[in-house]
Amino acid sequence: MRIVDRKTFLAMPEGTVFAKYDPSIIREPMVKFESIPGHGELVDFRYASLTDQVDCSGSLERDHIMDAAEENGTPFALHFNTSSRDGLFDADQLFAVWERADVEGLIARLQSALVDGYGAKASGE
């Protein structure tokens, strides 16, 4: 993992795994989509959260889903490709950018957790 400034981050390709970084705090992991140009330079970006995008059609449905989850323990699905725009334009924002080995390590850990926590998947499933 490495820490980069906003200008460096905006020049990175789609698919870059990152988190916003505040001194000594690495925020939630996200996947970078396109950078957005304005006035001859890259000024903003779109991203997908890996942890908090509920699979729903809008904020009203999301509220109902979350209420049911809180009140009744109703399971709900996440959507890993929901695109959001950053829109904060914070020139001082730093980013913790995951290296390939970091992403591979996370995948391996999640695969291990899948077997440990949910059991081995039977062949053919």
Rank of each mutant, 00 (worst) to 15 (best):
I25Y: 08
E61K: 07
M30R: 04
R46T: 14
A91E: 10
D63M: 13
Y118T: 13
P23L: 06
S49H: 12
F80T: 10
G38P: 00
W98P: 00
T8L: 02
C56E: 00
I26C: 08
V115P: 12
W98T: 00
F95S: 06
E71Q: 11
T16G: 01
V115K: 13
A48M: 08
P29N: 01
E125D: 15
M1Q: 09
Y118N: 15
T51L: 09
A91T: 03
S84H: 11
I25W: 08
I36S: 06
T51G: 12
A120T: 14
T16Y: 00
M66R: 04
M12A: 01
R46A: 05
V97W: 01
V54D: 03
L114E: 05
S24R: 03
Q53S: 14
E104I: 14
G40P: 00
T16D: 01
R2M: 14
A122V: 09
L10A: 03
F80E: 13
M66H: 10
Q53M: 11
A11C: 05
R109S: 12
L60V: 15
F89A: 12
M12R: 00
L78E: 09
D55M: 08
M30I: 08
L10G: 10
A113F: 11
S24T: 10
A91H: 06
G38S: 12
T16I: 03
